[in-house]
């Protein structure tokens, strides 16, 4: 009796699964696709909610006795396009590389480093956030801004999330 019941249950399950499979429409997955590259002063949407605009980049020499030690200061605005309060951490990550190597971060010479951990409400813009990087040479620097998208659907196919790159020349 138990076996008959089990078989009947199995049959019902199989029929329901096949019914769902045949009748449903094929689902197409879509997502926001961030640009691969962008430029200074451009409104860059790095994921579905976060917008970054690089306002200014400048190079400083903090120690006049060591002219080779240069710091790149990047100033940018961030718009939190979500409906929740957020901070930069967990929303996006801005890093820099030069000559293929990641640049060492340095916050000693920025105006207000606490903007990096200042929460803002959904829809608000936080202006004048600064980050500093220790330059290795006078060659071009590539800024990478990674939003919080782990997967991006291109033509319905999942691909790994990627950062938006902004090239900056050092004078």
């Amino acid at each position: 009796m138990k076996r008959v019941c089990a078989l009947l249950l199995l049959l019902v399950c199989l029929l329901s699964v096949s019914a769902c499979g045949k009748g449903g429409e094929e689902k197409v997955f879509t997502s926001f696709i961030p640009p691969k590259t962008a430029s200074v002063h451009e409104d860059i949407q790095v994921d579905e909610t976060n917008h970054i605009t690089i306002v200014e980049t400048k190079t400083i020499t903090p120690n006049p006795d060591k002219p080779d030690e240069k710091i790149l200061i990047v100033t940018y605005d961030w718009t939190n396009g979500s409906d929740k309060q957020k901070v930069t951490h967990g929303s996006f990550l801005l890093t820099a590389k030069q000559d293929g190597a990641a640049l060492q971060p340095n916050l000693k010479h920025v105006d207000d480093k606490f903007l990096l951990v200042k929460p803002i409400q959904g829809g608000e813009t936080l202006e004048g956030i600064q980050q500093g990087f220790e330059l290795l040479s006078d060659n071009e620097v590539t800024l990478s801004i990674k939003g919080n998208m782990q997967v991006v659907f291109v033509d319905g196919v999942p691909k790994g999330g990627y950062p938006v790159e902004v090239s900056i020349s050092i004078n």
Partner: peptide, 10 residues
């Protein structure tokens, strides 16, 4: 958090 702090120098 560790990774973020290390990346931005916090």
């Amino acid at each position: 958090l560790f990774s973020w702090a290390n990346s931005v120098g916090w």
